[in-house]
Amino acid sequence: MNEHAVDPTDQPDQTEQADQDWWARGRHPVNVGQLVMGLAFLGLVTIWAVLAADALDGDALRWLLPVPWLVAGAAGLLATTVGAARRR
Rank of each mutant, 00 (worst) to 15 (best):
M1R: 14
M1H: 08
M1T: 09
N2W: 07
N2P: 12
E3S: 09
H4G: 03
A5K: 13
V6N: 05
D7M: 06
D7V: 05
P8C: 05
T9M: 06
D10C: 04
Q11T: 12
P12A: 12
P12V: 07
Q14F: 14
Q14C: 04
E16F: 07
Q17V: 13
A18H: 09
A18V: 06
Q20K: 09
Q20P: 01
D21V: 00
D21I: 00
W22G: 00
A24R: 11
A24T: 12
G26T: 02
R27Q: 12
H28A: 00
H28P: 01
H28D: 00
P29Y: 03
V30A: 01
N31E: 09
V32A: 09
V32M: 05
Q34S: 13
Q34T: 02
Q34N: 09
L35P: 00
L35I: 08
L35V: 02
V36G: 02
M37N: 12
M37C: 02
G38A: 08
G38N: 13
G38S: 14
L39G: 02
A40S: 07
F41D: 09
F41Y: 11
L42D: 15
L42Q: 11
L42F: 05
G43E: 03
G43A: 06
L44M: 14
V45G: 07
T46N: 08
W48A: 15
A49W: 04
A49F: 10
A49G: 08
V50P: 01
L51E: 03
L51A: 04
A55G: 03
A55Q: 10
L56P: 00
D57Q: 06
D57H: 07
D57F: 01
D59T: 13
D59K: 07
A60K: 01
A60E: 02
L61G: 07
L61Y: 05
W63R: 10
L64K: 03
L64T: 04
L65R: 10
P66E: 05
V67T: 08
P68A: 10
L70P: 00
L70T: 10
L70E: 11
L70R: 06
A72H: 01
G73A: 15
G73F: 08
A74T: 14
A75Q: 09
A75C: 12
L78E: 04
L78D: 07
L78P: 00
T80A: 13
T81Y: 13
T81I: 03
T81C: 05
V82M: 01
V82H: 00
G83C: 10
A84I: 01
R86N: 14
R86L: 14
R86T: 10
R86K: 13
R87K: 13
